[in-house]
Computed example of a mutant assay.
Amino acid sequence: MNNRKKAGFLCFIPLLLLGGCFYPNSGAEERQGPDESQIAAVQQAVDQYREDEINLLPIRTPENNPPLYERYVIDFRQLMPRYMQEPPANSFESGGSYQYMIIDPEEEAEVKVIDLRMTREIREFEQRVSAYIAENEFAPIKESVAPGIFEADLEKLEYEERPTVASPYFNTSLPLLINADGEALVDYSIDINRALQVHDASVDEGEDARTVLVEHYPVVPAFSGTYELDENGEPVLTGEEEPGQL
């Protein structure tokens, strides 16, 4: 993730409160998510801004070429007060649990959100890893799971159980992995596989399998690597997203 593209989120985000309603067509196993009406309101404001400003978007200027699903964060200051009176109640800017962002800026410019509730666990995990690196001058790596991505040595980090975060999609827990710099990544393999089954979906050969989550849910799979489906249709982590990829 090159110099921690999510640093702007992790350095100062407190434990945030849950809010919102169920995803559309949700099953018993799907987790509560953001209020779709608030996302729709932001989408309307973004679309009108884009029309008035001749295809410009109300986004922060990306720094250090962050990963795709953390790249185009909405700057609500550009939308207020002409297009919105204030940011949505569930937005980070209003003390909520979600960072609003845009995907596919060249075409649809669709509004999605990053679920910030997982950042507490990510931050705590990275603090342990950083402390270990500071003391030992190398990362507490157990084994490689993909190019540049590793399973952490839990014994060295004094974990009794594998560190996880709550999935923003299902009632599941997602493992945390690390890269060579000791930065955390969320493993979405479980959720990708479940979304493929729940929505009877497919992913084209060579396509990043995270797209199944983006297509069917308002939350993007942030803080993660890239995935492909193997010959058995199972999601496999393929590595970190390179700058400019996707």
Rank of each mutant, 00 (worst) to 15 (best):
T119Q: 08
I190F: 11
L116K: 04
E107K: 15
T164N: 09
E108C: 08
A166I: 11
P221H: 10
D153T: 05
V165F: 03
G225F: 07
D47E: 14
E135G: 07
N3V: 11
P163K: 01
S130W: 08
L10P: 02
V165Y: 01
M84I: 10
F170Q: 05
V198W: 03
P163D: 02
P243Q: 09
A152V: 05
V236R: 13
A131F: 09
Q32L: 15
P163G: 03
L56H: 12
Q78C: 04
V186I: 15
A209E: 06
I178Y: 00
P87Y: 02
T172Y: 13
S94T: 10
D47T: 14
S94L: 03
E183G: 05
E51Q: 15
M84R: 06
F170H: 11
Q245C: 06
A152T: 04
Y98M: 05
V198C: 07
E160C: 00
P218W: 05
A131D: 12
I133K: 10
Q197P: 00
Q127F: 08
T164L: 00
R162W: 06
V220I: 09
E137P: 00
Q44M: 12
M84E: 06
Y98V: 05
I141R: 02
Y188N: 01
A201I: 04
V165L: 01
M1N: 09
D52Q: 12
E151H: 09
A7R: 14
S94V: 06
P62Q: 05
Y83R: 07
E241N: 02
E240I: 13
G33Q: 11
M84P: 01
E135L: 12
A166C: 06
L68D: 04
D191H: 02
E231K: 12
F138E: 14
Y83E: 05
A109K: 09
P14V: 08
V212C: 07
S189H: 04
F76T: 03
Q43G: 06
V145F: 01
E215K: 15
E215S: 14
I149N: 00
S224F: 07
R123P: 00
Y23W: 10
P81V: 07
P105A: 08
V186R: 02
V73N: 05
F223C: 10
L196H: 01
L246A: 10
R71L: 04
Y159N: 03
E183H: 10
V220N: 04
P218A: 13
P66W: 06
P147D: 10
P243E: 14
G225W: 04
Y69R: 04
S144K: 13
E29R: 13
N232M: 09
R71K: 15
E107A: 14
A222I: 02
Y49P: 03
D47S: 15
N90F: 08
T238A: 10
Q127P: 00
G8D: 10
K112A: 03
L213T: 06
S94Y: 03
N171Q: 14
